[in-house]
């Protein structure tokens, strides 16, 4: 018996979200009286692997294979399933990020394990297994009962938090059995943007809407984001107009994010936009229309012209940074 958590790596390194996943797995293991096994696929050095022990993993299963340098859904989900079988895992946990969304459904079918995607907290009951997830794109929550013996959960990023438990883990190498049928996709070309804060990882996000009036006015958004170490985002009309790239579109049909601070500049706050940002810990809205629905979602509001408020906010942040 164990709780298995798949900890993805980025160029051999884990992220905060990896530690959050292990912390969450530890919480489930405590509820069900078992321990946490973490699965790592790819080249991660011993020092990095050992970090997982600090968040509650007691065992780490390591798979290395040069064919696995890029995500291959067939092969990766096969490995996760094999390790889950070997470890007798009753619960398998992945992130609700691109990778988790790609793999969890396939693992679910392989293990005949009920999948609950996008959970935020520990189950309210372990037997029957009932856990809360987001539904209607953040407009509601659903309590879902998993009827199968095995369960798969994907955790929303920045929802559970990181909890150090101060343990250490043993590392065991595993050679999965893979065949050609697991390798039906091939990456031909990779295009990477470096040096930008990823929207999904960002603790602070500065976002602009149609109230910014045009792409030429994005200077203050980028300057403020730079000062705060934040990612930049935008509303749907802005990406539809081509003012900003689609990767920045935040909302129901774009990216769903949960940063600690979300600053919405010139965004009116349509229900679809709010659905994508409502899990943010703190929302600041800047809009000249005092009836804009964004103020219903916001914690702090500033009624004014973004072109005047943003430079003032930048100055205030600069003097705050110099004092702290």
């Amino acid at each position: 018996m164990s709780v298995l958590v798949y900890t993805e790596n980025w160029d051999g390194k884990f992220k905060k979200l990896s530690f959050e996943l292990v912390s969450f797995a530890k919480g489930i293991a405590e509820m069900t009286g078992t321990s946490v096994t973490a699965l790592s696929i790819g080249n991660v050095d011993a020092e990095e692997l050992n970090k997982l022990g600090n968040y509650g993993a007691s065992k780490i299963v390591e798979v290395k294979d040069d064919r696995l340098n890029h995500l291959i859904n067939g092969a990766y989900s096969s490995i996760i399933s094999q390790v889950a079988e070997k470890e007798g895992s009753s619960v398998v946990i992945l992130s609700n990020n691109n990778t988790g969304k790609a793999l969890a459904p396939r693992v679910s079918v392989k293990l005949k394990a009920g999948l609950v995607a996008g959970v935020n907290a520990l189950p309210s009951s372990a037997n029957p297994f009932i856990i809360k997830k987001k539904a209607f794109t953040g407009k509601a929550f659903a309590n879902v009962k998993v009827k199968s013996d095995k369960k798969i959960l994907t955790l929303n990023q920045n929802s559970f938090g990181v909890k150090e438990s101060g343990g250490s883990a043993s590392v065991e190498a595993f050679s999965p059995s893979l065949n050609d049928a697991d390798f039906k996709t091939e990456v031909k070309d990779v295009h990477k943007v470096t040096g930008k804060v990823l929207l999904t990882d960002a603790e602070i996000v500065v976002s602009g809407g149609r109230g910014m009036k045009g792409p030429e006015n994005w200077g203050p958004i980028e300057e403020l984001a730079g000062l705060l170490g934040a990612a930049t985002a935008c509303s749907r009309p802005v990406s539809d107009e081509g003012w900003r790239p689609h990767e920045e579109h935040t909302g129901q049909t774009g990216k769903i994010i949960a940063p600690n601070l979300y600053i919405a500049a010139g965004i009116s706050g349509a229900i679809q936009h709010v659905a994508g940002i409502s899990s943010s810990k703190c929302i600041v809205a800047i809009n000249k229309d005092n009836e804009a629905p964004i103020f219903e979602a916001a914690d702090y509001g500033v009624i004014g012209d973004v072109m005047q408020v943003l430079p003032a906010l930048i100055d205030a942040v600069k003097s705050f940074k110099s004092e702290n």
Binding site: A140, K145, A297, D299, V302
Partner: peptide
């Protein structure tokens, strides 16, 4: 089906937005 929706809840109401002088 392996999962079942037991019930639903709406997000808790948000506290009123605190307005700050521009």
């Amino acid at each position: 089906n392996l999962t079942e929706f037991v019930d639903y809840e709406l997000p808790p109401a948000k506290a009123a937005c605190k307005m700050v002088d521009p």
